[in-house]
Simulated assay, not measured.
Amino acid sequence: MTGRFAMATSADQAAARREALRECARLDAEIARLRKAAEKERQVPRQVELNLELKRAEAARAEVGKRL
């Protein structure tokens, strides 16, 4: 996911990475769901709302990606 490999130096660090990977997977699924919903939506105000949620989810995904 990051394009680089680094061994975990402790069990705590490995656990934190596993949790970050789970969170990344959850956010990736949420982003895909929001994209699909925004594409299908015909009402402009609802599209705007979905796109704002999408941007928030993408920002959260970027933050979680930094912890890997």
Score class of each variant (00 low, 15 high):
14 A>V: 04
36 K>A: 13
46 R>T: 14
53 E>H: 12
6 A>N: 07
46 R>S: 12
54 L>R: 05
19 E>C: 03
7 M>K: 09
41 E>P: 10
36 K>N: 10
65 G>D: 13
41 E>Y: 09
9 T>E: 13
15 A>L: 15
29 A>E: 08
40 K>M: 07
35 R>I: 04
61 R>L: 13
55 K>Y: 12
49 E>V: 06
45 P>K: 02
56 R>S: 13
47 Q>V: 14
45 P>D: 09
15 A>W: 02
36 K>T: 15
53 E>M: 11
54 L>T: 07
14 A>S: 07
60 A>D: 08
12 D>T: 03
42 R>C: 09
64 V>S: 00
28 D>M: 09
16 A>M: 01
14 A>D: 12
56 R>L: 13
2 T>K: 07
12 D>M: 03
50 L>A: 11
64 V>I: 02
19 E>D: 11
50 L>F: 14
55 K>S: 15
17 R>E: 04
61 R>D: 06
28 D>Q: 09
65 G>R: 15
22 R>T: 05
12 D>L: 01
67 R>G: 01
11 A>F: 01
15 A>M: 11
16 A>Y: 00
31 I>F: 01
5 F>I: 08
24 C>L: 11
35 R>K: 15
43 Q>R: 14
44 V>I: 15
30 E>A: 01
67 R>Q: 15
58 E>C: 03
28 D>A: 07
60 A>T: 01
12 D>F: 02
37 A>K: 08
24 C>F: 01
23 E>A: 03
19 E>S: 11
4 R>I: 07
53 E>D: 07
2 T>C: 05
55 K>I: 13
21 L>C: 04
50 L>T: 11
52 L>Q: 11
50 L>Y: 14
15 A>F: 09
6 A>D: 14
11 A>Q: 13
67 R>E: 14
45 P>I: 00
28 D>F: 02
3 G>R: 02
13 Q>V: 05
17 R>K: 07
55 K>R: 13
34 L>F: 11
10 S>E: 04
10 S>A: 04
55 K>P: 06
22 R>P: 03
11 A>L: 09
33 R>T: 13
59 A>F: 15
16 A>C: 00
36 K>G: 04
43 Q>F: 14
59 A>H: 15
51 N>F: 02
10 S>R: 04
48 V>I: 15
63 E>G: 08
34 L>I: 10
19 E>F: 04
62 A>R: 15
16 A>L: 05
29 A>S: 06
39 E>V: 08
7 M>V: 12
2 T>A: 10
33 R>C: 05
7 M>T: 08
